[in-house]
Simulated assay, not measured.
Amino acid sequence: MFSSAPAPWTTADIPPQHGRTVIVTGATSGLGYETARMLVEAGARVVLAVRDTARGDAVAAELGGAASVAHLDLADLTSVRAFAAGVEGPVDVLVNNAGLMAVPQGRTADGFETQLGVNFLGHFALTGLLLDRITDRVVTLSSVAHRIGRIDLDDLNTDRRRYERWTAYGQSKLACLMFAYDLQHRFVAAGSRLRSMAAHPGYAATNLQSRTESFQDALMGVLNRTIAQSGTAGALPTLYAATVADLPGGTYVGPGGIGEMRGAPRPVGSTAASHDRRVQRGLWERAEELTGVTVPL
């Protein structure tokens, strides 16, 4: 007899989350909002870690009493430290979701290239500062754009290179993925039961595609309306990585369709560069040096 293929994983497959606490960064819109909404619907208590607390309050009011709001600006390490200091009690899952894509050249409050600072370094610092309170797993968002990324350990912040927005985005998302993998290696080496996962949404229609401040905003707006999957569908890989109970640490989850652009979530592969242990270790050391945060493993 032929066995049938497993049914696609959907929101109906999210395990009950009652009694669990999840922090979701960037939860006022897009993937973060959808992730938070579905976790609350599954029974979790969700902390909306957001830069705009007025918008966060509106989302929390919509989601009900299981959602709370705390200020977090990943472009400012002072804010990251203040947020972490205010987190009381255990946190089952940290979802490192917030991000920027293909924005004009800029600098964070600490002088980091904006995309690297927000997408990677802010989340690296946040994870390190919260790790003593995390009880289950960390989920870090990457992108199919990690495939165009290259880690330049000698010029992470594009101080000497000519800035190119998509190259910078690719580097930041490759850094996120390498961080997720290296964190899992370190959990295993330390004998920790914690797990580190990574996820990417494929091509999902969110407000990320409207911040390039160039003609590309209009082009991506058309693509959002014609070929992109919804924000809800784009959040499914994150939810899979955050909630599937027996998922092995180090798993990378993305859409299962052609080119990983859309479709039901499943474990996916990544580039050989993302698994380079020498560069992973070098990136970790540079991140500790730049942020001043030593991850306690």
Rank of each mutant, 00 (worst) to 15 (best):
V80G: 01
G56M: 13
L130Y: 12
G106P: 03
A85W: 01
R51N: 10
E62K: 15
S79M: 03
A49M: 13
A58W: 08
L94R: 00
G99M: 04
G128P: 07
G65W: 06
G106Q: 07
M101P: 02
F120I: 09
T135M: 11
T53S: 11
N96C: 14
A75F: 07
R55P: 12
S68L: 04
Q115G: 04
G89Q: 02
G56H: 10
A82D: 14
G89V: 00
L130R: 08
A70V: 08
N96F: 02
G65Q: 15
R45I: 12
T78L: 12
G89F: 02
R55M: 13
L94Y: 00
A54N: 15
A54H: 15
L94T: 05
T78G: 14
V93G: 02
A60R: 03
E88R: 14
V59S: 07
R45H: 15
A49F: 12
G56T: 13
T78H: 13
D110C: 00
G65S: 14
V93N: 01
D132W: 01
V46F: 04
V50W: 09
A109M: 11
A109N: 09
G56A: 11
L129T: 08
F112P: 03
D110V: 00
G106S: 13
G65P: 03
N96W: 00
A44I: 05
A84G: 02
R55N: 13
G89Y: 01
L48Y: 10
G89H: 06
A70G: 13
L130T: 06
V46M: 09
Q115S: 02
D136R: 08
A44L: 09
V80K: 04
L100Q: 02
A85I: 06
V80A: 06
D132Q: 14
L63D: 08
A102W: 01
L121G: 02
T135P: 05
Q105K: 14
N97T: 03
R45N: 14
G111W: 11
L116A: 00
G122T: 09
A109F: 06
I134R: 04
